[in-house]
Amino acid sequence: MVPGLECQSHAAHGAPLDAPPLLFVHGAYCAAWVWEEYFLPWFAQRGWHATAISLEGHGDSRGHAWLAALGIDDFARNVHAVVKTMPRPPVLIGHSMGGFVVQRYLEMHRQHPPAGVALMASVPPFGINASAWRMLTTAPDLLAALNLFQANEHYHPDLDQAQRLLFSADVDRERLRDWVRRFQPESMRAIFDLSMISLFPVSHLPAVPALVLGAANDQLIAPHEVVATACRLGVTAEILPDMAHLMMLDTHWEEAAKRLEGWLRATWG
């Protein structure tokens, strides 16, 4: 769709819905593949045209050589480049860091907003510092493993660490092993952006249809942080039970997909 940016798309099966297309934006340390595993085919089978972008420096997109210099605004521009190729404004669906990228996209494109947004376990408006401090006190070994992975591309957290940080206890171990191998270091500039945003006032966002979901067992984004994100968008946060941070891959991923599709159909169906 856009030269140099990987996009994985699934056309709607059967009679497509008269509704906006969906554009999924991944979080830190991964790429479009996290949506390809379950969500893209699941939504396509239900009549939605579903696309996932790999942000610059991620997956098979350009930019790995300069990943460290890429910031949140660069990622929001990546999203905009894909949006411009779509036949109508999409619903932007962002997870974790991708949720903050979507928030920044709304700030940067107030005059031409997307059809709507859905944020899943999103980084809150005040960034990641509270999450880092919480992990320092409750799970310092996991924070150390995350920092070591960021500093050394040849190091990967072991399966138990990855499961405790990102997944439910009953996640499929074989799938987990494959997913951990696909994780990649994140942009230092993006992490800096997410750390420094707390120093600036939170701006209002344009009014668009919005859904904000959190995960009850999330080790990274606490429920009160999900509430803060929802307040910024003028909606009520929803915390899904029996769910960990990587909601689109976790054991009960279909519950998150069903809630998202229920909202989509209620808004555009």
Rank of each mutant, 00 (worst) to 15 (best):
I191A: 04
R164L: 12
H80D: 14
V79S: 05
L166T: 12
V101M: 04
S168M: 08
E225K: 03
P124H: 09
V102T: 14
R189V: 15
P113N: 09
G59V: 04
N129M: 15
G234I: 09
A266I: 06
G57K: 07
G27V: 09
M196W: 12
C30L: 14
D141G: 13
E261D: 08
R46G: 07
Q8M: 11
Y29M: 13
A12W: 07
T138H: 14
W179D: 11
G14H: 01
A216T: 02
E153Q: 13
F100K: 13
L194H: 09
P89F: 06
N147P: 00
V34D: 08
A52S: 15
A65R: 13
A230K: 03
Q45M: 11
A169F: 07
P90S: 02
G57T: 04
Q111C: 12
Y155F: 15
P3D: 00
A44Q: 07
H112S: 15
Y105K: 10
G71S: 11
L166V: 12
Q150F: 05
C231P: 00
L119I: 10
M196I: 10
G59E: 09
A215L: 02
W253Q: 08
A222M: 06
Q161R: 03
V82K: 00
S131N: 09
L264H: 03
A244N: 11
M247H: 05
H95D: 02
L70Q: 14
W268E: 09
A190M: 12
L92R: 01
H204M: 07
A151K: 11
L40E: 06
D160F: 07
A50G: 02
L205Y: 14
V82P: 00
A162H: 10
V212T: 03
S195V: 01
W35G: 11
D178K: 08
S198T: 11
Q163W: 03
C30A: 12
G98W: 12
T267K: 04
N217D: 13
R259D: 06
G234Q: 04
A115C: 10
M86C: 06
A52L: 14
H252S: 01
S61T: 04
A31L: 08
S198G: 04
A76W: 08
D218T: 07
L176Y: 09
G262T: 10
T267S: 08
M1F: 00
K84V: 12
G234F: 09
D242F: 02
V212E: 02
P140N: 03
A121Y: 08
H58W: 09
D74I: 04
M108D: 14
V171C: 04
G269Y: 00
A257H: 04
L220S: 05
A207S: 13
H245D: 07
R62W: 02
L106A: 03
W48C: 06
L194P: 02
G14I: 05
E255V: 10
W133T: 15
A76G: 11
A190H: 09
A50L: 05
H26S: 07
D158C: 10
G27A: 05
T51P: 04
A215F: 01
A257N: 00
A139E: 15
I128G: 11
V82L: 00
H49N: 13
V212M: 01
W253D: 01
P20A: 00
G98Q: 09
A19R: 01
Y29S: 14
C231G: 03
A139H: 15
W42E: 02
K258D: 11
V208K: 01
